[in-house]
Nucleic acid binder design. Structure first.
Lengths: 339, 339
DNA sequence: CTGAAAGCGCTAACAT
DNA sequence: ATGTTAGCGCTTTCAG
């Protein structure tokens, strides 16, 4: 395996110069640099990340901690982050918790990340105080995507506002019995989005002079199956709602499925709205509040890179915009004939 | 940052012994080992992967090259692989091509992987001869998931058989005008599954004494949108098919959407079957040929780990079983009244 | 069972 | 602009 010494010998220079030339550092004549680069290429020289990392203290690797890679939302954020990282020559180390408590402990507790990565991206999770302490001790840039963690660098949408927008859309159409399908406020993995979205839903109702009804607030576990189950409970009531706001598109898909099962037409008998603009939202004709998923990954990656390169860096709280996308699962109540 | 020397000093032993004790190597008294481990824990010692990698030549990291992380199939394979790798203390470096040609070049050509990983998992791609050469030169275990690459270690399903099963199911119901929605046989990224599935479809028809009709074979690009478009072409024909076999569930979802759009009832007017058993197949009530996705990732990871640990390793071709899952999108043709 | 010593292949001062 | 010299923090012979 050819090393930097081989290149140095070939160009009759020191390894220091070769190293500088190859990394584009200043203080190398153009001629030398060209010769070094050509020689390195010709010899098929590939630097050893381990050696470089040991000597420099930098691994050029960023850890991304994700609750579930198999959920489209997280995968899309990862994809966005990966693009930016790779453009800058950084590698992405994936830590997938798969919704598992012990995996979460392993990642945060046993300092798996120490001396291994230059920065960390945490997706949607709200780390516990203890975990934040550990992240802090890493002494490396950390950005949290999709969760509201005061004092930390975050990239997310305004979840409360997004929920308010969705609810207001239904209210605006004339609905007043509006159910909410969300997620547990506490659980194995902690997220801040569920509480924020619930709160947005309630406040929109309140602003419209309506009281929220606990019987119309169900847990859809942020999954298709959960949304489906929640909808069953909701739709089998005598005083069933005329509209359902699901805090994620996947839950909304579950709701749609159940609606079909119990023989309700959407949007004639039931309006449904979600949040995300999931890649499949279009094929369900789902009205939803779109959030820039991919972009959140890109911005977060950009953020840690800036921190890595720049001198000072202030943990910034970036809020990305959302947008109501009206498709065909929402309509005024009791208007089978049309709009 | 506490290093191995600090631990050695504390227990009054050499770093060699500490290293051996911590890694569970033989030749260390139980008492010493216990003392070392406790001390290491107490001091918060975390070994430096860079240093260990440099000294040992092993990175305890496996690269996973994936065409698109955002597609459920790939994400699920990654999840399976990650589980196994983590259990064995290996990290997963993600290389997402995002369907991009240049990304593919970068990953394979510039020896991004050299000296960086102990093994490589390639998902679904069929590397070119040139790329296989580079992979080979890595001198590291490589397993290819979901593609048929003779001479290399692979983990996959029998794509041709899966397609035959799907087609036979439709034939068995009495269909004879069966269309196929698949993917391009050549493209930016090369896969072997599209050709194998097309071939399975054709051979099932042939066995039933039917000739395949080129007009009934459409390109659905292995995406929802593509499946939808392909179905438009197919269903607007005067002599439209009574059944469509989509080579992936995502394309089948697109087909279902189009069927609804053009006013065809499924399964009364049109039967639809896919391949995968995608997590959303159930909510579409889609009949499909299920493949063990997650398991393919696990097996592949297991395979490279065996190669890494064991002395000899023969590139093995593992075929995992598929299973027909009959739901409600398939039925005998022209039988609106029931089955 | 334990220790001494020599690297692994780079980078980073500090010189020149 | 380039070279010299120390390491970075481990693992791995080879001794004992």
């Amino acid at each position: 395996m050819t090393g930097i010494k081989d290149v140095a010998r070939e160009v009759e220079m020191s390894t220091a110069t070769v190293s500088r030339a190859l990394r584009g550092l200043p203080g190398v004549s153009e001629e030398t640099r060209t010769r070094v680069m050509e020689t390195a290429r010709r010899l098929g020289y590939v630097p050893s990340p381990s050696a470089a990392g040991l000597a420099s203290g930098q691994t050029r690797t960023v850890a991304v901690i994700v609750p579930w890679v198999t959920r489209w939302f997280f995968a899309a954020v990862v994809q966005g982050a990966e693009e930016v990282l790779r453009e800058h020559g950084y590698d992405l180390l994936l830590y997938n918790l798969a919704g598992d408590e012990s995996a979460r402990h392993r990642v945060f507790e046993t300092s798996l990340l120490t001396k291994r990565v230059d920065a960390v991206l945490v997706l949607s999770l709200k780390p516990s105080l203890d975990e934040l302490g550990r992240l802090d001790k890493l002494g490396r840039p950390v950005t949290i995507v999709g969760a509201d963690v005061p004092g930390w660098a975050t990239v997310r949408i305004d979840d409360e506002q997004a929920a308010r927008t969705a609810t207001q859309h239904l209210l605006g159409l004339g609905h007043s019995r509006i159910a909410y399908v969300g997620g547990a406020l506490e659980g194995v993995l902690d997220f801040t989005a569920p509480a924020a979205r619930l709160s947005g839903y309630r406040s929109a109702l309140a602003e419209a002079g309506l009281r929220h009804d606990p019987a119309l607030e169900a847990d859809g576990e942020f999954s298709v199956a959960g949304g489906s189950r929640a909808a069953h409970d909701l739709l089998e009531r005598a005083d069933r709602p005329t509209a359902i706001f699901a805090a994620s598109d996947e839950m909304a898909f579950g709701v749609l499925r159940t609606a079909r099962e119990v023989g309700l037409r959407v949007p004639e008998d039931l309006s449904v709205i979600g949040i995300d603009d999931h890649e499949m939202a279009e094929i369900f004709d789902l009205t939803t509040v779109a959030q820039p998923v991919h972009e959140q990954g890109r911005v977060a990656a950009q953020q840690v890179l800036t921190a890595l390169e720049g001198a000072h860096w202030l943990p910034e709280q970036v809020l990305l915009p959302t947008r109501l996308v009206v498709r065909r699962t929402t309509r005024a109540p009791g208007s089978s004939a049309g709009r």
